[in-house]
């Protein structure tokens, strides 16, 4: 028995060691963002001094603030539109039987499997010929593809789990099907709705390739592009670049851990076999 305890403790210790090693590059970004540049140059692992000057620095740059606003705008719109489009679609796929339903479900899921690189060229050409290059509209619409399919499939799973009888009881009392959905089903799946909206926001917030391909002018750049401009080869500070990285990475981390259970459940339910 004592032997088993000892093995458990040893395995826990090994787990902690491996996780710290694997997460070291991420921890390093966060730590570097609060160290003065002179301290970074020493390459020591332990910070000798803590400072928030890098954050003050990036938050005083107008191009970074513009990018912050643009990212919030695009991310917020993407989250809202994803929910507004995914919710009715999920409800339709879950509650109705009609010709072509399975094909439609498959079409939506298949777009999730399509990598951005695969449609980059036509999207760039189409966006340019529509005169939408360098607009946040183009970025918002293309970012819908990032989270919409998984949102539809996750919400469908949650709606499937709400018993129909609840809606039918409400319809007996005279409400329409849509009325029953809004009054009965919607409140029950609210946590899932918040989770998919958040997920869509986070995916848009960190997206790089489409932004790089569609945006060139400073006033419509998003944060990942602004981070690149912080990286000025002639005069830049690693501390400032890392602080910019924290601004981009922190919301993703925070929101992910708030909704971890819904998202992990959704990923496994979304057709990827565990």
């Amino acid at each position: 028995m004592n032997d088993k305890r000892l093995i458990d403790v040893a395995l826990d210790a090994l787990t902690i060691l491996l996780v710290v090693l694997l997460l070291a590059p991420i921890i390093w970004v966060f730590v570097a963002s609060i160290r003065p540049d002179a301290d970074l140059m020493t390459r020591s692992l332990i910070p000798a001094q803590v400072t928030f000057e890098h954050f003050a620095d990036i938050l005083s740059r107008s191009d970074f603030l513009i990018a912050l606003r643009n990212s919030l705008l695009v991310g917020g719109s993407v989250a809202l539109l994803t929910v507004l489009i995914a919710l009715p679609a999920a409800y339709s796929l879950s509650r109705f039987t009609y010709r072509g339903r399975d094909a439609i479900g498959f079409l939506i899921l298949a777009t999730q499997m399509l990598p951005a690189v695969a449609v980059l060229v036509p999207i760039v050409v189409i966006v340019r010929s529509l005169g939408l290059a360098n607009t946040l509209t183009a970025l918002t619409v293309t970012h819908l593809a990032l989270g919409l399919p998984i949102a539809v499939w996750m919400l469908k799973g949650y709606i499937d789990a709400v018993p129909r009888e609840l809606e039918e009881a409400s319809m007996m009392e005279g409400s329409t099907q849509l009325g029953a959905m809004v009054r009965i089903t919607l409140p029950l799946i609210r946590p899932a709705i918040v989770a998919v909206g958040t997920f869509a926001f986070v995916l848009s917030w960190g997206e790089f390739l489409l932004a790089l391909a569609l945006i060139t002018s400073t006033d419509v750049k998003t944060l990942p592009l602004a981070l690149q401009t912080l990286f000025d080869p002639y005069s830049f500070s690693w501390g400032v670049v890392m602080a910019g990285g924290v601004v981009i990475g922190a919301p993703a981390v925070l929101l992910f851990f708030l909704f971890r259970n819904q998202l992990v459940g959704g990923l496994t339910a979304g057709g990827i076999k565990g």
């Binding site: 590059p25 960190g206 981070l227 990286f231 670049v241 990285g245 993703a252 992910f256």
Partner: peptide, 13 residues
């Protein structure tokens, strides 16, 4: 979950 841009610059650093 971390965006590529953050990890890429982290590793470059």
């Amino acid at each position: 979950v971390m965006p590529f841009i953050v990890l890429g610059y982290g590793w470059r650093f």
